[in-house]
Write a protein that binds this DNA or RNA. Structure first.
Length: 349
DNA sequence: ACTGATATAAACAATT
DNA sequence: CAATTGTTTATATCAG
């Protein structure tokens, strides 16, 4: 499929106390198979995605933000069968949480609208080629794909294109070339197999693409009940208590006993004092590798769960105050919703 | 009617 | 040489 694309994941190790990622990347094909709101139902079984190996936590963190009983959000909670099946908690975007350093209101969790049409003939997806390419690239482990990989992702996730006249491939290439949202990067010659370049999403256009995707989804979804959820709106409006509101959000739709048994959020109003920041000892390998995203205006972070604690691992050179962390938390909510959205958009069932 | 975004088709060059 | 990839141009459709 996409030679080389899956083998470039940088892997860093850092010493954490038996941490396991809270959200190891969900098997997208499983998630997709559970997405009832996808636009084109197919009688065929969902094809396996062009990637999916759950990857170990990466990035080169040097701060560990530990929040006993705190910092909890819906998708930052331990995965359980219940929330893995939860369509509103699709986590594959968390595989690499690349968050713009801008404050975005938390997006609602999307409930899956009922399937209205179970026709077996795949209909043309409502998503533009830009959106399809965007989703394909975002769903790749390295956030970059060769043209062929993009084809495959689209075909695997949108059965319509299995049988559609091949002109759509031309459109994909046309779109890649023409759109400013996508950038071509030279392949590493040493490991280059196959022809062509790898394509990635320009960070500056990422939010725009996400917006378009969101709008498309809204237009094709008749369920907006959650949009009026007062807790969500409150969380969007109140940055100060965002973390705790986030927790309230997470508890809203979770029947997970593990979550509900957690100590009540005690982060307001003196949460600054309760959030301990510890340094994490890093291996030399992790320290020596420069974060490629360091100068991009984006930041990569990861959550981990260890017993009752949740850890937010931030890049080594990040100098974040609590407010910024809260913003990141809000962004995590937005990302989570975006992940759900992309997931809803991206598959067959 | 105009404009911008998008889809589609096609031609062509470069690369593998 | 054939297939693939990438670029460019042209045209059509649709929504605002």
């Amino acid at each position: 499929m996409c030679p080389g694309a899956g083998s470039q994941m940088e892997s860093h190790t850092h010493t954490l106390p038996s941490l396991s990622p809270i959200h190891s990347p969900t098997n997208l094909s499983k998630a997709l198979s559970l997405s009832p709101s996808l636009p084109q139902p197919s009688a065929t079984a969902p094809a396996s995605l062009p990637h999916s190996p759950p990857s170990p936590p990466q990035s080169s963190p040097s701060h560990l933000l530990q929040s006993p009983g705190g910092l909890k959000s819906h998708c930052l909670s331990p995965s359980t069968p219940s929330d893995q099946d939860d369509l509103t908690c699709l986590n594959w975007l968390h595989q690499r949480n690349i968050l713009p350093l801008s404050k975005m209101p938390p997006l609602p969790q999307f409930e899956s609208p009922p399937i209205s049409n179970l026709s077996s003939s795949p209909a043309k997806p409502p998503y533009s080629f830009s959106s399809l390419i965007f989703m394909a690239i975002e769903d790749s482990p390295d956030k970059r794909l060769p043209v062929r990989g993009i084809y495959e992702w689209i075909v695997n996730n949108f059965p319509y294109y299995r049988t559609a006249p091949s002109g759509w491939r031309n459109s994909v290439r046309h779109n890649l070339s023409l759109s400013k949202s996508f950038r071509r990067m030279q392949r590493d010659k040493s490991q280059s197999i196959g022809k062509g370049s790898l394509w990635c999403v320009c960070p500056e256009y990422r939010s725009g693409l996400l917006e378009v995707l969101k709008k498309t989804h809204y237009c094709h979804s008749n369920n907006s009940s959650l949009l009026n959820n007062p807790v969500l709106l409150e969380a969007a409006d109140d940055g100060r208590s965002a973390i705790c509101d986030t927790m309230a959000i997470s508890d809203l739709d979770s029947n997970n006993p593990t979550l509900s048994s957690n100590a009540p959020c005690s982060l307001i109003p003196e949460h600054e004092e309760l959030v301990a920041i510890q340094s994490v000892e890093l291996t030399e390998e992790a320290e020596s590798e420069k974060d490629p995203l360091a100068d991009s205006g984006y930041i990569e972070f990861h959550y981990y769960q260890c017993e009752q604690y949740q850890y937010l691992v931030l890049p080594g050179n990040s100098d974040l105050d609590l407010e910024t962390v809260e913003i990141l938390q809000l962004d995590a909510e937005a990302q989570e919703a975006a992940g759900s959205l992309l997931d809803l958009a991206g598959g067959n069932h």
